[in-house]
Amino acid sequence: MNKKHWLLLITCIVLSGCSREFIESVYDVDYTPSNRFAKNLAPLPGQFAKDTAALDSLMNQFSGQVANKWGQDNIKMAGAKTYVKYTDGYLNRADIDFDNGTVTVETIASTDPTAHLKQAIVTTLLTPNNPANVDLFSSKEIAMGGKPFLSDQVVDQNGQSIQWSWRASQFADYLIKNKLQTRTVDFKKSYFVTIPMVQNHSKLRSYQYAAIVRKASRQYDIPEDLIYAIIKTESSFNPYAVSWANAYGLMQIVPKTAGHDVFNLVKGKSGMPSPKYLYNPANNIDTGTAYFHILKTRYLKGIKNSTSMQYSMISAYNGGAGGVFNTFGGGKTNAINDINRLQTNQVYWALTKKHPNSESRHYLEKVTRYQKEFHAMK
């Protein structure tokens, strides 16, 4: 979802308490509840069905605090490929754009702003590689300790990795002296610095999860390059990822749908995983890969060609098994028979040109492109 839609939704909720109908018109999604155990799988929306109660609660509790300090036109919130964290009573903000490879840290403190900014820079650089230590939807301070998340992905003015407080402090002083910028934010003066990440920052993040990906791949018989491609597409290897669909972590798992399926059908557990569980990279990758196993052995079972199966799995991860079946005329049996009669390139063409959901059409294109890149890196 783009920033314009975020701002429109938040403004509506904060200022006027808008209706569900308005939210639906902004998001253009189907809120129909899912039932993973229904006999007819065609209508199922997939793991990205919205958790509207959680979404509403999140907007109401958090956005007002942000708007109060930063104004309606300067609201930023964490997303799948962005890390946004407020601290110091919402006076400081860190914004990491994982797609573009930039880290922006700013403060709107009116008293001794450079001191506030320095503290915010140091905190951002030393934020630990543990999402459990960071509450993205409050201004609660971060529990420090352990290897910093941005270690090696950001280097100081001398090209050195930042892992210790003294180096982070020295780099913060350098940035404030040489890179400080200002702008007006809701009639307040903002002081900020923008730090470029190293060129291969995405690959560095991916390397952290190699052992976890390998284990999940072997356990569930899902290709490693596919797992990597899904993670890059969903979160750009951002373990703090959270999205509009109430999805969490690297593979953007929705607890009530994919999470519930994995717990019940694979793990033999009742209920669904918590956000804390899904923010653990090992749990997240295991859950996401297990969901692919469910798609392969249950919801899409019967597709004979392995490549056609993989295209269908990728599409279903985003748009549901029902979206795949509807692409080929609807109804599981008839759709699978049609898929089995087609060449793999025809299946790909149909899912990228005729799928009823435009997002799912582009999703398959993106994932397969990334998959080729990761396959070439082996």
Rank of each mutant, 00 (worst) to 15 (best):
C12R: 01
C18L: 09
R20V: 00
I23G: 08
E24F: 03
V26K: 07
V26I: 15
V29F: 14
Y31R: 08
R36L: 15
A38C: 01
A49P: 00
K50P: 07
S57Q: 13
M59Q: 09
M59V: 10
N60H: 12
N60V: 08
F62P: 10
S63G: 02
V66D: 06
A67D: 05
K69P: 05
Q72W: 11
I75M: 03
K76Q: 14
M77L: 13
G79Q: 08
K81L: 07
Y86L: 12
T87G: 07
G89Q: 13
D95P: 04
I96R: 08
N100V: 03
V105G: 03
P113N: 13
H116Y: 15
H116R: 03
K118Q: 14
Q119D: 06
I121D: 04
L126W: 08
L126D: 05
N129C: 03
N130Q: 07
L136R: 13
F149R: 02
S151I: 01
D152M: 00
G159S: 10
A168N: 01
Q170F: 01
D173H: 12
Y174E: 06
I176Y: 11
K179F: 12
T184L: 09
K188L: 13
Y191R: 02
Y191K: 00
T194C: 04
I195C: 06
V198R: 01
K203Q: 14
R205K: 07
R205Y: 05
Y207M: 13
Y209T: 02
D221Y: 04
P223F: 10
I230Y: 09
K232S: 01
S235I: 05
F237V: 09
W244G: 05
N246G: 01
I253E: 01
T257N: 14
N264L: 09
K269M: 15
K276I: 13
N283F: 07
N284F: 06
D286L: 06
G288Q: 13
F292M: 14
H293P: 03
K296C: 02
N305V: 07
M309D: 07
G319R: 07
N326R: 14
N326F: 10
G331C: 06
K332V: 09
D338W: 10
I339E: 00
L342C: 05
Y348H: 05
S358L: 14
S358R: 13
V367Q: 13
V367H: 12
T368L: 08
Q371A: 15
M377S: 11
